[in-house]
Design a protein around this nucleic acid. Structure first.
Lengths: 147, 147
DNA sequence: CTTCCTGCAAAAGATTTGCACACGA
DNA sequence: TCGTGTGCAAATCTTTTGCAGGAAG
């Protein structure tokens, strides 16, 4: 069992949630696809491939639980379903969403901190998190159309 | 009929869309609530109060059409339904979403341009739009809890 | 007239919930 | 054991769609 998986399961135990096989399978699938932004249905399909007895509702309940525990972050890319990625409290990243092919790239940047402080001062609004999405056209689509 | 309404209806005509009363009523309701971020259901309720014969599907179709024409921008605040505001090509603003009471405040800022250029250069990704959401706690909620 | 629009009702798709049973701690 | 967790199916909620009738240009 991987280090990361153990960490997450420990986080569940801390709060008196049980370490059921279903929860482990969901986490494992997410760990195997950290490069993607899986939807509930996709997680369900991947878990089911190896463990056919899991129910879709359980997947939803697990993803919801992990989001509440800040293990996952629930994302919305405007395609009508929620997607999930591991939350990383120390390092925010943002998303580049291609309007042509729909691919979602990640962008490592964190220059919003000064802005967050300014917002706190001028508005009294305490920022605890932010989400940034850039829409546009990815390199591949641009080359295809320029050609 | 207000200037703004005329402009929008003209934009429809330009592209050979008909100026039906239903479309006018939807736009009028949005103009009367520029301070809010109305959902389709809310627009429907407001239009129906004065013009009971409109259908919900028509409201959805009109909001969709206006979004395609860049008259409106479709927003997602994570509450499970889409919300709409007038699009302003020249001046982006972002949203402060309170995790406690759910209120959405607006923030006038546009310091993402330099970042957009950097993304274009380093990734070949042409940014045409962006959306920024800050999550946290608004002044009112903070005072309520500090007290 | 003729094509675009509309209202209604049904369909579709994602997520949630009720409930009886199963199983971790 | 015993309360939490699960699977299944039904319910819910938002949004979309098919279709027959209606109206704008």
């Amino acid at each position: 069992m991987s280090r990361r998986l153990q960490d997450i399961l420990a986080k569940l135990q801390e709060r008196d949630y049980k370490l059921t096989p279903q929860r482990q399978h969901v986490v494992q699938v997410l760990l195997n696809h950290t490069d993607k932004h899986l939807s509930a249905e996709e997680v369900y399909g991947l878990v089911k491939a190896k463990n056919p007895d899991i129910g879709l509702a359980t997947v939803y309940r697990t993803l919801e639980l992990l989001s509440e525990l800040d293990v996952l972050q629930k994302l919305d890319f405007g395609d009508g379903r929620s997607r999930y990625e591991f939350a990383d409290e120390t390092h925010h990243h943002h998303h580049l969403i291609c309007l042509s092919c729909g691919i979602v790239e990640e962008l490592e940047e964190d220059l919003l901190e000064p802005l967050e402080h300014r917002v706190a001062e001028s508005r009294g609004f305490l920022v605890t998190d932010h989400q940034v999405k850039f829409y546009g056209y990815c390199r591949a689509c641009r080359q295809k159309n320029d050609a």
